[in-house]
């Protein structure tokens, strides 16, 4: 490939890439702003996962009964507050 051929090939590639980049496209992806509710719903999933983990570790013998009950109460309390806020936001 001569130097001229190389430049021509490069220019053709540049043209193709320019067309791809600036081609008028109306169907580009868009996304609404993430709300507090979205965040709380994500957090709810995480709290449920934490509770499942706690239950599983208890069954696997890692927590004595009293530790388990304390931890579960704490997590459930946190989850209850979160669910209440979710409900409040969903009704608003």
């Amino acid at each position: 490939m001569t130097e001229l051929q190389g430049v021509i090939a490069g220019a053709m590639l540049a043209l193709a890439l320019g067309i791809y980049t600036f081609w008028p496209e109306n169907a580009f992806a868009n996304q609404r702003e993430k709300t507090r509710l979205d965040y709380l719903l994500e957090r709810k999933e995480q709290l449920y996962e934490n509770l499942r983990d706690l239950n599983f570790e208890h069954r696997a013998g890692k927590y004595p009964e009293e530790d388990f009950l304390t931890q579960r109460a704490l997590l459930e309390d946190e989850t209850a507050q979160l669910l209440a806020e979710i409900e409040h936001l969903q009704q608003a």
Binding site: L47, L51, R72, T79, A80, L83, A84, I86, Q90
Partner: peptide
């Protein structure tokens, strides 16, 4: 989701 007790 509105019933905290169901989390358990």
């Amino acid at each position: 989701a509105a019933q905290p007790s169901t989390a358990e």
